[in-house]
Nucleic acid binder design. Structure first.
Lengths: 220, 220
DNA sequence: CGCTAGTACGGTACTGAGTACAGCCACGAT
DNA sequence: ATCGTGGCTGTACTCAGTACCGTACTAGCG
């Protein structure tokens, strides 16, 4: 079987980074090992860090597409499935994802790069949800909180899996996501109810709960 | 009045970045303008980006100190006040903060740098809260969600202020933070009550609420 | 006063990432 | 056959960041 230039660069980079460390490896070494010219490397990846994150643009596009199909009433589902797309990508990568995790954990420059790419996902979720909640009280804030919560829950279970602390990643994901989706209550179809009350008495809180439930069922 | 080398470098850098753009400005130009040697620049700031974020280490230390003094029962307050420390720092910076915001908004490299420093705050909160919730069900996940929520709420109101969309930043902060502190409910002394229920009926949810309130008041 | 140690600064020389540019070759279409 | 066109290569350059050494100034001590 034959490999593309891109694939040969990626494997060469991974091997060298693991053998010598990221900083100690020069782009010249990578291109020599891959048997291509130096210019080709930078045309393909832009920066030395990017060679480790070669699929994010594509995954980002898939996530955006999924969020774009959400309709009122299916938004919580769309958010959850969109996050699931990212997770599935890591699962598909398998051992490659773990190799990258070991590298990003130990090299500060790579950590920063990874954080930046997480931020791109966060922004994508944030933009969509903000749009959905436009006009609602505290919509912008609630949207950002929901987006970060989804990303955080996703990253939490993903990291457990990358560390080898867990094996049933989909199950962990299903468990963690409801925490994250609290601020999208009216979307959850009554399965999970969240009420925030500042009432001073127990009966006041209960009244707030009944009010909230009545409002939610009126939406349904 | 006399200025330290550090201060002269900072002002020179800000001026040049605003006049010519960040990428078009070389470290040589900054040091020439400030009247110091090139070596001094890198000894003082490490990287060209760092000159724009000169106080984060110190603020980070203050935040850590505040979180360290939290005791069971005062944790929600500690978290809120710790976030407030960061906010107050920006308020004290005043126009400098806005100048930096304009730069970070337009230059990708600076945006990444800023995101990375936000992540440092997030980690700090996360570490403390994780420690507090050790042993509780889903403690690690809830801790991360709380930390990110606090950071998100903080950043949300801060950004409004930096954009000039609001003037009463402390008030916005007080309003936004309760959203973020939802997952620290048992700490809020009853002022904010959050209940997550999966009960299939209204009465079931209400029963869950009463149970949760009973449990919380037993803690008090 | 001389001596010493620490601290802040400066200069030189180097590595290596990233850019600009010009050229080359294989290919498919007309 | 030739004419793009897309993927590849080499050369030369800028500039951030590092290593190393030398130099002033100050503080403290005999």
């Amino acid at each position: 079987m034959t490999f593309t230039t891109r694939e040969r660069l990626i494997t060469a980079a991974f091997d060298l980074f693991e053998a010598q460390g990221f900083d100690a490896t020069t782009v010249d070494q990578i291109t020599t090992q891959a048997g291509v010219g130096r210019t080709t490397f930078f045309r393909t990846f832009g920066t030395k860090e990017d060679v480790l994150f070669p699929h994010h643009d594509e995954v980002l596009a898939r996530v955006a597409a999924r969020l774009g199909t959400a309709t009122p009433g299916t938004r919580a589902v769309a958010v959850q499935e969109a996050a699931r797309i990212v997770l599935d990508h890591y699962i598909a990568e398998g051992e490659v994802a773990r190799r990258r995790y070991r590298l990003t954990s130990s090299v500060p420059a790579l950590r920063e790069r990874e954080i930046a790419s997480v931020e791109r996902y966060r922004r994508l979720f944030s933009q969509h949800i903000t749009h959905w909640l436009e006009g609602e009280p505290d919509g912008a804030l609630r949207a950002e909180l929901t987006a970060t919560a989804v990303i955080t829950a996703h990253n939490h279970v993903l990291r457990q899996w990358l560390r080898g602390a867990t094996t049933d990643l989909p199950r962990d994901f299903e468990r963690a996501m409801p925490f994250a989706l609290r601020t999208l209550t009216s979307e959850t179809g009554g399965q999970t109810v969240v009420v925030v009350s500042s009432a001073p008495s127990v009966e006041g809180v209960v009244a707030d709960v009944r009010r909230a439930l009545a409002r939610d069922s009126a939406h349904a």
